[in-house]
Design a protein around this nucleic acid. Structure first.
Length: 484
RNA sequence: GCGGUCGUCGUCCAGCCUGGUCUAGGACAUCAGCUUCCCAAGCUGGUAACUCGGGUUCAAAUCCCGGCGACCGCACCA
């Protein structure tokens, strides 16, 4: 379905909408409404089921504000603080350090202050290379959002990736949870990036949700991974050249050296089967191998899990081999070596991560799920992902059907997300339910009053069947049960 | 961040050019009532908007400036 249609659905039904809307607040911030929260919660619960519980991972929930040292260690403060100058006339922006070294032929040290750079620009009479006008002063631009803590305004940052919490917590978790390598630690939470120009609603946000999984392992033991045995024949849809996708078995991918280890193969399979369960159209999904230039500074091997949407191929998950970069850096900065015992050997674990963008996954599933059946718009969400599971309707508003419907509703509303609707014709009510993806509707009619049976109407087929109220709970439980 | 286009009920649009019958209109949606025994029927009534700030003017949704936002292109995107 098109971008505009999904946006209309989101705004009209309240899945999500711009933040601080009545003041046309800053770009890149969006709110989840009731349906959006319901959907997202269920999405995260499927993530927990298909990845965390299935594999025995540990989940934590870290603080969003973290001290400056964390990001000094992670490299974010150096790598993402660029000194920039802006032309007073045409507004063009340049990296101040690069500009100075280009024009003067001298190397500018990484840590040069704004004042030093300004002096150099003045001394060498450097002007805008586009229009020749003056620059305003050098400023530091950073994708990190800073905050001040307490009366003396201690410098801190909103985390730009949730995984830093996992890294700095690693030693404690490993010890108190009596971990052995390999171990996976996961987290669902918010991250913040001061994007220059956020675009396309849920795709590029300044405040966004991530589901991250960090797998800590002994690099000397990663060749043989027991769990791999069960998935060696599984096929992954990979894209090696940025164009064509193909299904290849894990054993083939390993033999050809495309995947570096059995362990990584296993986790990519796990991730792919998770997304299959979310209802994403997997024929429009792929693992794209990243080139050297595309990888993050810390990563030595990376696949992006991407899906095709109205905006083209969109990255949903970054699968990075981060080596021992993070734990070594945190070890150096904190002065506490981040090594653990693995059998007889003491090792600094390496890390493989699955870093999922939740908001854009939500968007992609909506795009792949909203379908037009003749004149009927149906949001074909998997029953276990539907924010509202059941509609309860009196067929007509008389003869005590409303009261009976209220009775049915109160019977099921504690166990299911159910809603009651008496407004408009029965057909209109079915259509309203279809568009927000309600899988089942219960209708109370004359026969209900006579013999306590209701009709269950199915969203996708529109077919109806009649069940006794005593059987209802069992049938609904089966309907919304997660398939094995 | 730069450039272009744009900003009116929940959604989509009319009105703007040519300021004043605009107390801002319509469609769809929504709410109340009537009707309705199964797939957007009908009737009656209702709620609901000029993005924000400043300026010009006797008078601003309408003209001008600025902020904020949206879309498109460039740049950016751990």
């Amino acid at each position: 379905m098109s971008y505009d249609r999904i946006m209309r659905l989101a705004l009209e039904k309240g899945f999500f909408f711009p933040s601080s809307e009545i003041y046309s607040g800053p770009a890149g911030f969006w709110e989840y409404g009731p349906l959006g929260v319901g959907f997202r919660n269920k999405f995260v619960e499927v993530w927990r089921r298909e990845l965390l519980r299935k594999d025995g991972m540990l989940e934590i929930d870290g603080s969003q504000i973290m001290t400056k040292d964390v990001f000094r260690a992670s490299g974010h403060l150096d790598s993402f603080t660029d000194p920039i100058v802006k032309c007073k006339k045409c507004g063009s922006i340049f990296r101040a350090d690069r500009l100075v070294s280009e024009k003067t032929g001298t190397l500018v040290t990484e840590g040069s202050s704004e004042k030093e750079l300004d002096d150099l620009i003045e001394k060498h009479l450097i002007r805008c290379s586009k229009c020749g006008a003056d620059f305003g002063g050098t400023k530091k631009f950073n994708l990190m959002m800073s905050v001040e803590i307490g009366g003396d305004k201690e410098e801190a940052y909103l985390r730009s990736e949730t995984c830093q919490s996992i890294f700095v917590d690693f030693l404690r978790i490993f010890k108190v949870m009596r971990c052995k390598l390999p171990v996976a630690i996961a987290q669902f939470g918010k991250s913040f990036r001061n994007e220059i120009s956020p675009r396309q609603s849920m795709i590029r946000l300044r405040e966004f949700y991530q589901c991250e999984i960090e797998i800590f392992f002994n690099p000397n033991q990663s060749d043989v991974f027991q769990k791999y045995d069960g998935i060696s024949k599984n096929r992954l849809r990979v894209c090696l050249d940025g164009k064509k996708s193909q299904n290849m078995s894990c054993s083939e991918l390993l033999k050809k050296g495309i995947l570096p280890s059995q362990m990584i193969a296993y986790y990519l399979v796990l991730l792919q089967s998770f997304y299959e369960k979310t209802g994403l159209d997997m024929t429009r999904a792929r693992f794209r191998l990243l080139s050297d230039a595309e990888r993050a500074f810390y990563s030595s091997f990376a696949f992006d899990f991407e899906v095709e949407t109205s905006m083209g191929w969109t990255e949903l998950v970054a699968c990075n081999y981060r080596t021992d970069y993070d734990l070594v850096r945190h070890g150096q900065t904190s002065g506490r070596e981040h090594s653990v015992m693995d059998g007889e050997a003491q090792v600094v674990p390496h890390i493989f991560e699955l870093s999922m963008g939740v908001d854009r996954s939500i968007w992609a599933i909506l795009e792949h799920s909203l379908t037009k059946h003749e004149e009927r718009d149906v949001l074909e969400l998997k029953p276990y992902l539907a924010p509202i599971q059941i509609g309860v309707f009196p067929l007509v508003n008389r003869d005590g059907m409303e009261e009976k419907a209220a009775e049915v509703l109160s019977k099921i509303r504690k166990d299911f997300n159910a809603f009651y609707d008496r407004s408009g014709s029965i057909g209109r009510r079915y259509r309203r339910a279809d568009e927000i993806g309600v899988p089942k509707c219960l209708t109370i009619d004359t026969e209900t009053l006579a013999n306590d049976t209701v009709t269950i109407r199915d969203r996708d087929s529109m077919k109806q069947s009649r069940v006794h109220l005593d059987e209802l709970r069992g049938i609904l439980n089966t309907t919304f049960l997660f398939p094995d």
